[in-house]
């Protein structure tokens, strides 16, 4: 069984805050991608992906977020990754995607 990686989705005006929980690996990344892309049907102005509850992510999880980034750019939707752990940050650094994504540890900054 693949439990859903999306813990909660909350809305503040047109900003969707998605709290992701648990390890994101090959076992769960497809489910994450499906849920995140599905959220775009709700036409948010911005998507904030809260990664504070993700202890581990591999390249399949990163690929899901790259897919989301690509789709949000096409739609003119902002995307922010909020509070990744050091371990998760390191995979973005290794793949040099830390300069491609907007990543912050500040909720206020993410919502602005």
């Amino acid at each position: 069984m693949t439990d859903s990686p999306i813990q909660t989705v909350t809305w503040e005006d047109k900003v969707a805050v998605v709290k992701v929980a648990g390890d994101i690996d090959l076992h769960r990344s497809a489910s994450l991608q499906h849920a995140l892309l599905g959220l775009l049907d709700e036409q948010p102005s911005k998507v904030v992906v809260d990664l504070s509850g993700v202890p581990y992510m591999d390249s399949s999880g990163v690929a899901s977020l790259v897919k989301l980034l690509s789709r949000t750019r096409k739609l003119g939707v902002s995307l922010v990754l909020l509070s990744p752990s050091q371990k998760v940050k390191s995979i973005f650094e290794i793949t040099r995607l830390n300069s491609v994504f907007t990543i912050t540890d500040s909720k206020e900054e993410a919502m602005a």
């Binding site: 990163v62 690929a63 690509s70 793949t95």
Partner: peptide, 18 residues
């Protein structure tokens, strides 16, 4: 090429870096 931002194909790069 990491400048080509697209999903997938990062596994071998990660392995060689780690």
């Amino acid at each position: 090429d990491l400048n080509d931002v697209r999903p997938g194909g990062l596994g071998v790069h990660i392995m060689t870096q780690c």
